[in-house]
């Protein structure tokens, strides 16, 4: 399906202390790997904002790979744990939005693992080659826009940012939650938010009725209505004129 001349666009985020150094070591050891990856250096994998990742896809990246230090090795003590939560959540958002979460990959490479670095990059490039180009059609653009809204949402960012510390130290009442338990809550918040974001992404092209939104998102009308009521309460959507006895909903301020 991919044509001969197509070469995947891959963005790599590497942390300065481990994976970027591992990439340098691959260089000094002259370990050859696929040339498609374009590396951006950050100080810590925990610095990688999910917004960047979604924006990279929206700009035409076919794959994004984030490599950090192994657990316990992080130069910033816990940055890689934070990265894990963020990237995992971003993968889940992609999946919930109906996109291929395999296009986003997270792993760990130490400064001493030049060989491993090259292997992971090759494996990831191969995987993206097999998946083919992302092909940003209207449908995907809409989904990615919704994903961007979701990773930018304050509530989502709060729970994802809080996940590591809550599991480690417990909540404000000193209660410790099992990781899976808390993560289920995180996921439900993300899911709820993504639904709202998808509606907002759909409304970007103009006011629509509940039925129109529901058919575009392949959701039940009652679910869409529920979310719309929420969105109106949050002051993001407003009810406008009535079309064929059905009210039109529009993004507020647009």
């Amino acid at each position: 399906m991919a044509n001969e001349s197509w070469k995947p666009s891959i963005i790599g985020f590497m942390c300065n202390w481990c994976s970027y150094a591992g990439a340098d070591l691959a260089g000094t050891s002259r370990i050859q790997y696929s040339p498609e990856i374009r590396i951006i250096r950050v100080l810590c994998s925990g610095r990688v904002d999910p917004k960047w990742i979604i924006k990279a896809f929206l700009k035409g990246a076919d794959g994004v790979i984030v490599l950090g230090c192994h657990f316990g090795d992080c130069h910033y003590i816990t940055g890689n744990y934070q990265a894990e939560k963020k990237i995992k959540a971003t993968q889940e958002i992609l999946e919930m939005a109906g996109l291929e979460k395999e296009r986003l990959y997270l792993d760990w490479v130490s400064a001493a693992e030049g060989m491993r670095f090259a292997k992971l990059v090759d494996q990831f490039t191969d995987k993206i080659r097999k998946l083919g180009p992302l092909k940003l059609d209207d449908e995907k653009r809409k989904k990615l826009t919704a994903a961007l809204l979701t990773v930018s949402n304050d509530k989502v960012r709060w729970v994802v940012g809080r996940e590591f510390s809550i599991i480690k130290d417990g909540n404000a009442f000193g209660e410790k939650l099992a990781p899976y338990e808390f993560h289920e809550q995180v996921k439900s918040i993300i899911k709820d938010n993504l639904k709202k974001s998808l509606i907002m992404a759909v409304l970007k092209s103009g006011p629509k009725t509940v039925r129109e939104i529901a058919s575009e998102l392949r959701e039940s009308e009652s679910e869409i209505l529920k979310q719309l009521v929420d969105l109106m309460r949050l002051d993001k959507v407003e009810m406008g004129e009535v079309k064929d006895r059905n009210p039109l909903f529009a993004l507020k301020g647009e």
Binding site: V42, L43, C44, G46, R47, V48, D49, P50, H75, Y76, T78, G79, Q82, K86, S152, N153, D154, K155, R157, W158, V160, G161
Partner: peptide, 19 residues
Amino acid sequence: GCGVCGASCPEGAIEMKYY
């Protein structure tokens, strides 16, 4: 300068120097 704060600020109120 790790930037974990910047990457997770719910309000997008944190910008890092250089990175």
